[in-house]
C-alpha cells in the first residue's frame, strides 16, 4: 500500500508513544473480537452468594453487587466502547464532511447559513448538547451514540471547511473547472482528498472523545442501561460501594482511561506525522 512506504508512516514508526497507542488499540480490537472466548464468565451471570468480592484467583478483578465477574464485563464492554467510538465518528464524518466541503467550496449564502448553524450548535458545551439530544430522543445506548455523533458534527464542518478554503484556489482546481468537470466531482475527487490528513487526525482523537462522552452519559444514567456492561454505566452502578468494594469502579474507569489514552496517543502521533503545521507540541 502507498501509505506504508510514505514519509508519514516512517515518521509515525519513529514515534514510540504513537506505537504504544497503536498496540493498545489493536489489543483492544482483539479483546473485543474474541470477547465470548476469552472472558472467563458470562458477563450477565449473577451469583448472589459471591457479591462484591475483591479480586481473587476465581475472579481476577472481583465481582460486582450482583456477583457478576468484573473482568468478563470489562472484556465485553470493550465491544460496546469500540462500537460507540466508531459509530459516532461515522455519524460526524458522514454529515460533517460533505456539509463542510460544500460550505467551503461554494461560499456565499450557503456558507453563511452553515456557519450560523455551527455557531448555534457550538453555543452549547459538547456534553450539554449531548444531554439535550438524549433528553429529547430518550435515554439508552443507541441514542447516546447518536447524540455523541451529532455533537461532533460542527467540529468536522469547521475543519473541512477550513481545509477546502485553503485548497480550492489551487491551479489544479481551476484546471478541472476549465475542463468542465462536474462540480460534485471536483469537490469529492479533487479537493477532499487533499483535506484527508486533518480529517484522519481529528477522527482518531474523536474516537477517544466519543468513548469518554458516551461513558459520561452512561454514568449519568442517560446512556447504556443496566444490565449492559458499558464501562460508564458499570462505574455508575459501582459507585455506591466505593467505601467497601472500590474494585467495581476502579477497573472499568481504568479501562476507559487506557482506551482513550490509546486513541489520543495514536491521534497525536498521526498529527505529527501527517501534518506538522497542526502539531501542538
Amino acid at each position: 500500500m502507498h501509505f506504508f512506504r510514505s514519509k508519514a508512516f516512517r515518521q509515525l514508526k519513529k514515534n514510540r508513544l504513537a506505537i504504544a497507542g497503536i498496540i493498545f488499540i489493536l489489543a483492544l480490537f482483539v479483546i473485543a473480537a474474541l470477547a465470548p472466548y476469552i472472558a472467563p464468565y458470562n458477563p450477565y451471570q449473577t451469583d448472589f452468594f459471591r457479591t462484591l468480592e475483591g479480586p481473587s484467583r476465581q475472579h481476577l478483578l472481583g465481582t460486582d453487587d450482583l456477583g457478576r465477574d468484573v473482568l468478563s464485563r470489562i472484556i465485553h464492554g470493550a465491544r460496546i466502547s469500540i462500537t460507540i467510538g466508531f459509530i459516532s465518528v461515522a455519524i460526524g464524518l458522514a454529515v460533517g464532511v460533505p456539509i463542510g466541503a460544500i460550505s467551503g467550496y461554494y461560499g456565499g449564502k450557503i456558507d453563511i447559513l452553515v456557519q450560523r448553524l455551527v455557531d448555534i450548535m457550538m453555543a452549547f458545551p459538547g456534553m450539554l448538547l449531548a444531554i439535550i439530544i438524549v433528553s429529547v430522543m430518550g435515554v439508552g445506548l443507541v441514542n447516546a451514540m447518536i447524540a455523541v455523533g451529532i455533537v461532533s458534527i460542527p467540529t468536522y464542518i469547521r475543519l473541512v471547511r477550513g481545509s477546502v478554503l485553503s485548497i480550492k484556489n489551487n491551479e489544479f482546481v481551476e484546471a478541472a473547472k476549465a475542463l468542465g468537470v462536474r462540480e460534485s466531482k471536483i469537490i469529492f475527487k479533487h479537493v477532499l482528498p487533499h483535506c484527508l490528513a486533518p480529517i484522519i487526525v481529528q477522527s482518531s482523537l474523536q474516537v477517544g472523545a466519543a468513548i469518554l462522552w458516551a461513558a459520561g452519559l452512561g454514568f449519568l444514567g442517560l446512556g447504556a442501561q443496566a444490565p449492559i456492561p458499558e464501562w460508564g454505566a458499570m462505574l455508575s452502578q459501582g459507585r455506591g460501594y466505593i467505601r467497601t468494594a472500590h474494585h467495581v469502579t476502579t477497573y472499568p474507569g481504568l479501562a476507559i482511561m487506557l482506551t482513550v489514552l490509546g486513541f489520543n496517543l495514536f491521534g497525536d502521533g498521526l498529527r505529527d506525522a501527517l501534518d506538522p503545521k497542526m502539531s501542538r507540541d
Partner: peptide, 12 residues
C-alpha cells in the same frame, strides 16, 4: 493521563 481519565472516575 489527565486528558484521558474520565472526570467522574477521577472524582471517585
Amino acid at each position: 493521563f489527565g486528558v484521558a481519565a474520565p472526570v467522574f472516575w477521577l472524582g471517585l
